[in-house]
Structure formats: structure tokens, C-alpha cells
Simulated scan of single mutants.
Amino acid sequence: DCSHATLFFYCCDGSTTSSDRQVLVFPFETDFSFVALIPQKEMGLRAFTLCMRVATELEGERQIILFAYRTPDYDELNVWREKDGRIAFYLSGDGVFFHLPPINTFRTSLCLTWESRTGLAAFWVDGRRSTYQVYKPGHTIRPKGTVLLGQDPDKHLGDLEAMQSFVGEVTDLNMWDYVLPRSQIQALHYEHKITKGNVFDWATIEYQLNGNVMVVDDD
């Protein structure tokens, strides 16, 4: 079953090819295409670093979901490009908003860091950090949910909306259950080897494809 694979890609004939250079392509706006990511450990998180390289041609006043993690009753961690172009993330409620350089047709290296102890949150774009904002100190992200790329589930794996779907490319998605130091985030942007993500490691990530999503080599 090639719908369940890893990006250290297991093909249907049983052969294995190294694929940490693969890209997920979402070619069309839909209410059914998504990729479910399977974490390497439970996502009960009190801190995290989430990084990906992302590109889109979508413009205008339209929400775009960049990352969605939901448990049955809560949007635990959602990252959006908002209608006004700001980038926001939400932890089980009202979000926090950042004015960042626009995500466009050229791939952006985007990281997000947050820790519960202080509430300090920041985005990193191509190795440069935004200003810190204080957001939900003391909060804990709940485990046992589902991570989706491409769609925002308004209930557990349901109520998908085409006008919020992601169209474009995602690659190099990695996640850690702690805040990476500046030197590591900048090294990741320049594609240097750093500590592998212990929640998601793009080189070995497990995923399930649904609908019209392509996995292509990044040549």
C-alpha cells in the first residue's frame, strides 16, 4: 500500500530509496487532499520547534493552513497565513499574529518556536528571527491527536474547506519537543546537518496521502 509510506521511501516492490530530498506538492485547491503525518513520539508538548520549507502561488485575501494538529475536541497547534497576509499560530483558542515577509512562489524557510515556561514565541524566516511575543505561558499541548498538511479539520478529520486548503509545495518538515538555539535554526536554513527532529524527522517521516497530493524528487 503506497498510500502509507515514509520519506525514507518504501516503494510497493519492497525496495528502499533515500528520499530526504522529496517534496509534497498540493497542485489544486480541494476539500479532500491532505497528508497525515505520524509523529515519532506523542505530542504532549510544553515546548517545540517546528520547521518547514514552503512555497505557494496563492495570493489575495484567503486563509491558508500551513500545519494543523488536532485532538478530538481542540485545534491544538495550527499555523496559518491569514487573509491579511500575517502569519499566525493558535494553541487551543485565540491566536498570536506576526508580520513576516510574504510566503510566495520561491521557497521560504519557516520555523516556529514556543515554550510554555515563559510563553515566548517567535517565527524564523530564512534564518532571521521575528520579535518575541508572549503567548499562553503555562499551556500544554495535548497528545493523541492527528497532524495534517493541506487541510484544517474543524472536527477530528472532518469539515474540510477548500478555501482554507494549502496549494503549493512543502518539504524539509522537522519538529523537536524543545526550542532549538539560534545557531541550529540558522544551520538548518543553510541545509547543514543538525540534530534530527525527535517528533518529526523529514528523512524518515511516516505519512499517509489522501486525495490529490504528489510526492516528487527535489531536483
Score class of each variant (00 low, 15 high):
96 V>P: 11
96 V>L: 05
97 F>M: 13
97 F>H: 15
97 F>P: 01
102 P>T: 14
103 I>N: 07
103 I>Y: 04
104 N>Y: 10
105 T>H: 06
106 F>H: 04
107 R>M: 12
108 T>W: 03
109 S>T: 06
110 L>G: 06
110 L>C: 07
110 L>V: 14
111 C>G: 01
111 C>F: 05
113 T>S: 11
114 W>Y: 03
117 R>Y: 00
117 R>D: 00
119 G>L: 02
119 G>F: 03
119 G>P: 03
120 L>F: 04
120 L>R: 09
120 L>P: 01
121 A>N: 02
122 A>N: 01
122 A>Q: 14
123 F>P: 11
123 F>T: 07
123 F>A: 02
128 R>I: 00
128 R>S: 08
128 R>M: 01
129 R>W: 01
130 S>E: 05
130 S>V: 02
130 S>T: 05
131 T>L: 14
131 T>P: 07
134 V>I: 13
135 Y>I: 07
135 Y>Q: 03
135 Y>L: 08
139 H>M: 11
139 H>L: 11
140 T>Q: 14
140 T>P: 00
141 I>T: 12
142 R>F: 00
142 R>M: 05
142 R>D: 11
143 P>T: 13
144 K>T: 10
144 K>R: 03
145 G>R: 12
146 T>E: 02
149 L>P: 01
150 G>R: 06
150 G>D: 03
151 Q>V: 06
153 P>G: 15
154 D>K: 15
154 D>M: 15
154 D>S: 07
156 H>K: 04
157 L>S: 02
157 L>K: 11
159 D>I: 10
161 E>V: 13
162 A>E: 14
162 A>K: 09
162 A>N: 02
162 A>Y: 09
163 M>F: 09
163 M>T: 10
166 F>W: 14
167 V>I: 14
167 V>F: 06
167 V>H: 09
167 V>P: 08
168 G>K: 13
169 E>F: 13
171 T>D: 12
173 L>Y: 06
174 N>T: 10
174 N>R: 08
175 M>P: 04
175 M>Y: 02
176 W>T: 11
176 W>H: 03
178 Y>D: 10
180 L>N: 05
